[in-house]
């Protein structure tokens, strides 16, 4: 029996991991700038899914093609970014100015999460589809352009999502290093007082960080809509756990490690759990008489397990690990 998962499953898993990576990256960014763990982040990503669903229903129903894959993530990202900015400027910033503690602000993000989730659910329930009869739970996997390699038919979102993650990560890196506003953002993250003494509008930097974070979430959500059996904002309740796991594994101190942490956790959740399940079935069930249950349902145990491991052995996450020293200690590098 094969231990490794199949080809299609692997592609799906990589796409999922890339989406979690994008979400963890954005979550890490707003945590680094404004110090608030945003519990509404996954639901903000769902705005992207909803936009994608509406685009398919209203515009691209008859001829979905590659333009859908350009318009969906772009508009979904912008919508999510707009909401994210609204959340920071109209809700969190005033609350912080009123003297709320970090716990108060966390509660506020939970409140926003609940409001947004229920509004999105309400919209999908109440707004009639133009072509799709019932929008909530509508499967849209058939609306993506197909990629054919010989006899293989590949879900194109599984290619586009990792590609989008890579492009966005590079673009954001260039923004942070090549533009003076990007440099100001890094400066503000390190020392807001000094940055403001240099004339940086710290408040604007924070707002832009929320916009970027929301955009990344919206892009991930728009493309991830194809991964679900049907679009339902409620999936964000479990996704947020994985996203936080990715951010904590990454260390909540670097956007790149946030992306990578999310990717690692996402992969571990899908491919890691499947491999463990295959081993369990092949060994424990077949030969040792263990109950024949599917361990795949417990993939979230994997992400929380990784978080616990990281918090125990590398409390500052992968970003805090001294990789050079680790490599030399393991004999990988002389030094």
């Amino acid at each position: 029996m094969a231990i490794l998962p199949g080809f299609t499953y692997t592609l799906n898993s990589i796409a999922y991991a890339a989406a979690i990576g994008l979400l963890s990256m954005g979550l890490t960014l707003t945590y680094m700038t404004t110090r608030v763990p945003n519990f509404a982040h996954a639901t903000i990503g769902m705005i992207g899914s909803v936009v994608m669903l509406f685009l398919i229903d209203r515009v691209f129903y008859d001829n979905p093609g590659w333009t859908l894959f350009l318009a969906g993530p772009l508009l979904g990202g912008l919508a999510a970014a707009a909401f994210s900015v609204f959340m920071y400027v109209a809700i969190l910033r005033p609350l912080a100015n009123r003297g709320n503690t970090i716990i108060g602000l966390m509660i506020a993000t939970l409140a926003v999460d609940i409001i947004l989730l229920n509004i999105l659910t309400l919209i999908l329930n109440e707004v009639p589809g133009k072509n799709i009869p019932k929008l909530i739970g509508a499967p849209i996997i058939g609306f993506q352009p197909k990629i054919k390699i010989g006899n293989w038919v590949i879900d194109s979102y599984t290619i586009v999502l990792p590609l989008a993650a890579a492009v966005l990560a590079v673009a954001f890196h260039l923004f942070l290093t090549r533009t003076s506003f990007g440099v100001a953002m890094r400066a503000t993250i390190e020392n807001p007082d000094l940055a403001s003494a240099m004339g940086v509008n710290v408040s604007l930097v924070y707002t832009v960080s929320w916009a970027v974070s929301g955009f990344l979430a919206g892009v991930a959500g728009a493309l991830m809509a194809f991964a679900f059996k049907g679009v339902d904002p409620a999936v964000s309740a479990l996704i947020i756990v994985t996203v936080f796991a990715g951010s904590i594994v990454g260390g909540l101190a670097s956007v790149y490690w946030g992306l990578l942490g999310g990717f690692i956790v996402g992969l571990a959740e899908k491919i890691g759990t499947t491999m463990i399940n295959n081993i369990y079935k092949a060994l424990f069930v077949a030969h040792l008489g263990f109950p024949n249950i599917s361990l795949v349902n417990y993939e979230k145990v994997m992400s929380l397990g990784l978080v616990v491991l990281v918090l125990l052995y590398a409390p500052r996450g992968l970003a805090g690990v001294d990789w050079g020293r680790l490599a030399s200690r393991l004999g990988l590098r002389r030094g």
Binding site: S180, V183, A184, R186, A187, N191, A195, M198, V200
Partner: peptide, 12 residues
Amino acid sequence: FAELTVRENLKM
């Protein structure tokens, strides 16, 4: 700014 390069510090 310790995490920025010297050039970026001067830029800031």
